[in-house]
Amino acid sequence: MDSLVVLVLCLSCLLLLSLWRQSSGRGKLPPGPTPLPVIGNILQIGIKDISKSLTNLSKVYGPVFTLYFGLKPIVVLHGYEAVKEALIDLGEEFSGRGIFPLAERANRGFGIVFSNGKKWKEIRRFSLMTLRNFGMGKRSIEDRVQEEARCLVEELRKTKASPCDPTFILGCAPCNVICSIIFHKRFDYKDQQFLNLMEKLNENIKILSSPWIQICNNFSPIIDYFPGTHNKLLKNVAFMKSYILEKVKEHQESMDMNNPQDFIDCFLMKMEKEKHNQPSEFTIESLENTAVDLFGAGTETTSTTLRYALLLLLKHPEVTAKVQEEIERVIGRNRSPCMQDRSHMPYTDAVVHEVQRYIDLLPTSLPHAVTCDIKFRNYLIPKGTTILISLTSVLHDNKEFPNPEMFDPHHFLDEGGNFKKSKYFMPFSAGKRICVGEALAGMELFLFLTSILQNFNLKSLVDPKNLDTTPVVNGFASVPPFYQLCFIPV
């Protein structure tokens, strides 16, 4: 009986604490739906499609509103004006990374994606500088992407125009580009180590996009005490870190300090320079996690976009025909596509942009946080508050993009057929937390897609009208449904 009384008292205290925290903070924060004790607004949000729920709530509470995930307040920004004001106009104040408990377990605050403060700034600055020195957006990395595009075309030829699921092959190409940047090595598509790495990356994007992960991140005790797919994700990350550590040891034994070959060499050189400046942010643990982040951000996002792009091109054969006509006119058949071609191919450029806009790969991006107490639109948001960005509300804005739910390359073309930029184009987020590999991803999408369409016609196994382009999961990332196609050599 005594234990029951204690339990009831504990629960009562928890409920009172929950109510007090919510009521004391709500006077400062933007308005929002009334949260339930302990669980907050979790029942009012469709976990399978958070973005749709945010759109519905914005119609009631406006472009800036507050939700509670458990006891934790989260300020939501919906629509271009609110997102721009926060991420661009007040970029420094909104540059923090929001709480992501599962990532905390995986990387302990290291790396480039989930770190904060001085650690994040130094690692991000170093990573950007190193990638630029190796030619991100310049010639040397373009050579690597072109080489991988040629290998991709050869792998597709091996399908002999038979029906195939493109998931694996389209994942190999961007993964190999990242391998060449980090390890100075590309792998054969049949290499077992490479296959294991690909498998872990593919599993992780599916797990991260599941409703279960949303629950884990908002009720963090689940991570330590409950079984579930989150444990598989943590094991996959541990596998990748151990693999990278092996490569780091190989580099330490063979590195030429006067001739760095890749990202690992550059990081080890930085560690050597910083060894007298303790404590340094440049450690082996930081290198492991930064490399894992580059793999995660640079492989599955690009391969998922490529997979979605081919599905949309199957669905819209008239678009595919126009792209192939432009390829034939500008590039021809006797040389590989290059980035200089893009400025002469406005329709193809528009298609690449429209694919990214339409699929809305990361509907709410990753959570941000404010780095200080900030007054925002007459609300006071306390330091450390998590900020949720609705990228969907920007990419699918119906004023900027008429009929935003329709796939239409003319969203990025003017009346004369010239490519038209849009400030609403934010597939990689915006501001200080914009994806480090934005330029690389854009290069890969253009070169891989043009190389495929230069060499193959795409054949659907069903009537294009019957192809479903609805994402199968739409949590962290929008993942396309399973499909097969035939690559018919031109």
Rank of each mutant, 00 (worst) to 15 (best):
C10L: 12
L11R: 03
L14I: 14
W20I: 14
R21L: 12
S24R: 14
S24G: 13
G25Y: 11
L29N: 03
P35G: 12
L36R: 07
L36T: 07
N41E: 04
N41T: 05
I42P: 05
Q44D: 11
I45L: 12
S51H: 14
K52F: 07
K52V: 10
S53M: 07
S53P: 08
S53F: 06
T55L: 13
N56Q: 15
K59L: 11
G62H: 02
G62F: 01
P63C: 08
Y68H: 08
V83R: 01
K84M: 07
A86D: 03
D89A: 11
L90T: 14
L90N: 15
F94S: 08
S95P: 05
R105M: 11
G109C: 06
F110M: 13
G111L: 00
E122V: 09
I123E: 09
I123P: 15
R124P: 00
R125T: 07
M129A: 13
L131Y: 05
R132F: 06
N133H: 08
G135C: 10
G135S: 10
M136G: 12
M136R: 08
G137V: 09
K138H: 10
S140T: 13
I141C: 05
R144Y: 08
Q146S: 09
E148I: 02
T159V: 03
K160R: 13
C164G: 01
P166W: 01
F168H: 13
L170V: 04
A173L: 02
I182S: 01
F183Y: 03
R186I: 00
Y189E: 00
K190L: 06
D191A: 04
Q192S: 12
Q192R: 14
E199V: 08
K200M: 08
N202L: 07
N204I: 14
I207E: 05
L208M: 15
S209R: 15
I213G: 15
I213Q: 15
Q214M: 11
C216G: 14
N218V: 15
S220R: 14
P221I: 07
P221C: 11
I223T: 14
I223H: 09
I223P: 13
Y225T: 08
F226M: 12
F226K: 04
T229N: 14
T229Y: 15
H230S: 11
V237Q: 08
K241T: 03
E250L: 06
E253T: 08
Q261G: 11
L268F: 05
M269S: 12
K273H: 09
T283L: 07
A291N: 01
L294I: 09
G298N: 04
T299G: 05
T301Q: 00
T301H: 02
S303A: 11
T304P: 02
T304H: 08
T304F: 04
P317I: 03
V319K: 04
T320Y: 04
V323Y: 04
I327M: 05
E328Q: 14
R329I: 10
V330G: 05
N334C: 13
N334E: 14
P337E: 00
S343A: 15
T348V: 10
V352N: 03
V355G: 01
D360T: 13
D360S: 13
L361V: 07
L362C: 04
C372E: 15
I374T: 14
N378K: 10
Y379T: 06
K383N: 05
G384S: 05
G384T: 03
L388P: 00
S390T: 09
S390M: 11
L391Y: 11
L391F: 08
L395I: 09
F401E: 02
E405Y: 11
M406R: 14
M406P: 04
D408H: 03
L413V: 04
D414Y: 04
N418D: 08
F419T: 06
K420I: 10
K421M: 12
K423T: 08
K423L: 07
M426Y: 10
P427Y: 02
P427G: 06
F428Y: 10
S429E: 05
K432R: 12
K432N: 07
R433H: 10
R433L: 04
G437E: 03
G437P: 00
F446S: 01
L447Q: 04
F448D: 00
S451M: 07
S451R: 04
L453T: 03
L453G: 01
N455F: 04
F456G: 01
L461D: 10
K465S: 11
N466G: 09
N466H: 13
N466T: 13
L467H: 02
N474G: 09
N474F: 05
N474L: 05
G475T: 09
F476K: 04
F476N: 05
A477G: 08
A477Q: 07
V479P: 06
F482S: 15
F482V: 14
Y483F: 12
Y483H: 01
F487C: 01
